[in-house]
Simulated assay, not measured.
Amino acid sequence: MSEKGKVVTPAAPGLINKEDIPQVLPILPLRNSVFFPGGVLPLAVGRQKTIALIKDAVRDDQVIGVVTQRKAEEEDPGAADLHSMGTVARIVKLLKMGEDNYSLVVQGLARFRVNELVQEHPYLKARIEAIEDKTPTDHVVESITHPGHLADLIAANVDVPIEEKQQVLETVDLKDRMKLVLELLNRKREILKLSSKIDSQVKGEMSKTQREYYLRQQLKAIKEELGELGEEEEELDELGERIKKLGLPPDVEKVANKELNRLKSIPTASSEYTVARTYLEWIADLPWTKKTEDNLDVENARQVLDKDHYSLEKVKKRILEY
């Protein structure tokens, strides 16, 4: 059983009396979601056991138990694969979508605890204990209309891990449940604030960089039209032409062009501008395609060293030995 779409609508608490809940319920395992009392949830059904369960439940007009699986990938869950607390539910709508595919809508009625499984085939059945909320004598809790339902409604819709939602479902004391939900909301609020701050900073930096680049391109076009293209722009264009004519290896040419495009967007007063330009000029000055023939005549090398350098006999000796 998988969650088809999250539709949780407020419903009045006390939808079923404790004495009207059977002691044995058919159990519908739920993947990737936690179902709360007072909620309405559409589900897609494809497992054979679940199809047999809903057919019997609709035929006999009986309530069922919805329990979240511990591991969503488990195809045939047993007692150890299910949480101990679930929700009594009524099937309010059933549609046949295909031969082995059904869509249904269930309404949560009350909490229950699984005591033991009494049947595994053709579907799971368990002996259960209906659980009622523990209402503390607290003026804060008493001042809220239906506090348990409010906490369940918030927990069902807040984006937190399944384990934390299950913890809310298993918290029977209303005051403790409301504290737990408040902690979840505060933590989610801080996460959203931090995400929003980071997004704003990233967008601000991107917008600033894009705006500067766009304005510089406009300024360059205007100067070209007026015949006032600055000396720096002309020199960068010349540098680009030099790099293009060097016949660089593909990987080196890619890096050089990337650095040149970046250089055009950097203010000339920036220290980074000087570093980038020096790097590109160094690339342009290297003899990438020029070659000379090696002269390995040691005697000729000695004559050249003696002619160009006075004394330094030890140094020249070491050079010739090398």
Rank of each mutant, 00 (worst) to 15 (best):
K165L: 08
K291N: 11
L320S: 02
S200Y: 14
L15Y: 05
A155F: 06
E281F: 05
S2L: 14
P122D: 05
K197S: 13
R47W: 02
E99A: 09
A12F: 11
V160F: 07
D81P: 02
R216D: 11
E225S: 10
E120H: 06
E142R: 15
Y273R: 08
Q62V: 14
R242Q: 15
S200M: 12
Y214F: 14
V275Y: 06
A156W: 08
I54Q: 04
K223H: 06
V88F: 01
G14K: 00
T145M: 06
P161D: 14
I91E: 09
E299R: 11
L150D: 00
P250S: 10
H309Y: 15
E235W: 04
D76I: 10
V298W: 03
L219K: 12
R211T: 14
D60M: 08
G14D: 05
L248F: 09
G148P: 06
P42G: 02
D251C: 04
P161S: 04
E142D: 15
D199N: 14
D61N: 15
V67K: 03
R90P: 04
M1S: 10
L25P: 04
A79C: 03
S195Q: 15
T209L: 15
D294L: 14
Q303R: 15
D306Q: 11
K307R: 13
I198R: 13
Q23A: 13
E238P: 01
T145Y: 10
A72W: 08
Q119D: 09
N261L: 15
R177W: 03
Y310N: 10
P26E: 06
A156R: 03
L239R: 05
K96H: 12
L15A: 14
Y213C: 00
K18Y: 07
M206I: 14
Y273E: 02
I144D: 02
V298H: 02
K244I: 06
T171K: 04
K203M: 08
V298T: 10
T289R: 15
D56I: 02
A151Y: 04
E321F: 00
G230W: 07
K188P: 00
G247D: 03
